[in-house]
Amino acid sequence: MGGVSVEGGGGSKRAVDAEINMIPMIDLLMVTISFLLITAVWSHMSRINADAQVPGPPREVEPTQVEPEKQLHVEMRAPDKFVLIWKQGGTVVSTVDVPRKDNLIVKDGVKNIRFPDLAAKIEAEWKTAGSHRDATDKKFDQAVLHTDNETPYVYIIGVMDAIYQPHRPYTAGGKTEQVPSFNVTFAVN
């Protein structure tokens, strides 16, 4: 039996400490450990965000005409290369080809693909041509993903993962954290 008796010598006074029975206590600890281990989540789900760029409701007063921002268009239609195109409105500012190597890894039926060359090139492009790099800038550079209709979803996620590789500081509420540099959306056609 455990427990420490700290009777103050008060004679008829009740003891301050009660003794704890060790066996039920160890049983309780074991059951708690088992419960926590069983309910623990070992495979954490995550998410990759995309913005559908839906126009807002019509305004009563139309804003004055603003110059369209540069957008990075990522073309993944060709089987042997990616094409990175910076466009400002309808004008092509620059074009870069990135060789495509589809290194698809299949493990237990789960496919996994990475495009490290594409990610490195997108990061380099953003560092040279990105418009929103300051931590206090609330806007983000926009990336538009172009894919054909037959591309499997796993490849789309691989390319989106590469687009989200470059990070920038972002200050909100006095707190600065690293966030992805691009917002991604899909091209309709």
Partner: peptide, 19 residues
Amino acid sequence: FPNVSFMVNGASKTPGGTA
């Protein structure tokens, strides 16, 4: 619902780029 998130299995970052 314009803010669309794609659920994926999170992988640890590796220098080589392979999850």
